[in-house]
């Protein structure tokens, strides 16, 4: 018994030290990411054998991210900007631990709710209700907790009359509303958002913005990919500008956005 108590004290001390050490909620350290190029991808045995005989089965890689680093403290938010295909979404997936970096490390201390492409995690044949439970389980919540939140989620998505309909019969706006409602109702520490804050009709958009502000005031960290500079400036303290897989600028949101906008103007000329 005594020994147990002692251990507990030591553990508590360690927790205290840990929290000092790990004040960063996201640490991305020198991360590089490589993919195999699509045209070299072999997805059947026949092709593999043919290529082996021809001696053309070498792998070609393409660099998507190169030496990206940033750190976020709890409550801080960051915006990722850059042109299409620059590697922003890949960076989000690295933070969500869906991808593993080829080089470097990604450390995340907290519960992550990935909001990448709303409704992608839904099963079209299942009803909306079943999908809420499945998605809740994927985000790490036991059944009874989802049951508690279920009403809240449905109310927020304004889909009270549609929960027993298969998702395949939903409009894309309805799907997006449901996806958003689930993701924000699971109390995440970190929300990863990929260009989806402009879903639904005017009414719902206003509600989203309200909820996002509420979450931000509660200290939720946002990592946002967006082409809307206004939105990024209003939500984030920091920004990182990625172009052709490399970091062009990183730091205060105002400065980075300004640099990016200047660059865009020059490109147009």
């Amino acid at each position: 018994m005594k020994k147990n108590n002692q251990n507990e004290v030591v553990a508590n001390e360690n927790v205290a030290i840990k929290s000092l050490e790990e004040e960063y909620i996201i640490e991305v350290d020198n991360v590089s990411m490589e993919f195999y190029t699509r045209d070299e991808k072999i997805d059947n045995l026949k092709e593999l054998i043919v290529r082996l005989i021809k001696g053309k089965a070498q792998k070609k890689t393409v660099q998507v991210l190169k030496d990206v680093s940033f750190k976020l403290k709890k409550g801080e938010s960051i915006g990722l900007i850059g042109h299409n295909g620059a590697g922003k979404s890949t960076l989000l997936k690295l933070i969500a631990e869906i991808y593993r970096p080829t080089k470097g490390t990604v450390k995340v201390n907290g519960k992550v709710a990935p909001l990448l492409n709303l409704g992608a995690g839904f099963d079209p044949e299942s009803t909306a209700k079943e999908n809420v439970y499945l998605n809740g389980a994927i985000l790490g919540y036991p059944k009874r907790e989802i049951a508690k939140k279920y009403k809240e989620i449905v109310e927020f998505a304004e889909l009270e009359d549609h929960m027993h309909i298969p998702i395949k019969n939903f409009s894309s706006g309805m799907v997006a509303r449901l996806g958003f409602a689930i993701a924000i109702d699971v109390n995440p520490d970190i929300l990863l958002v990929d260009e989806i804050l402009s879903v639904g009709d005017e009414n719902f958009r206003r509600k989203c913005a309200q909820k996002v502000n509420e979450l931000r005031e509660n200290g939720v960290t946002f990592v946002i990919v967006s082409h809307n500079m206004q939105q990024i400036k209003s939500l984030c303290q920091k920004a990182i500008w990625i172009e052709n897989s490399e970091v062009m600028a990183y730091g205060d949101v105002g400065e980075v956005c300004e640099k990016y906008q200047e660059y865009c103007k020059e490109q147009k000329k």
Binding site: K93, I98, P114, N117, A120, F122, I138
Partner: peptide, 9 residues
């Protein structure tokens, strides 16, 4: 793939 590419699972 919808679930695997959008969530840690």
């Amino acid at each position: 793939r919808g679930l695997l590419t959008k969530n840690k699972i």
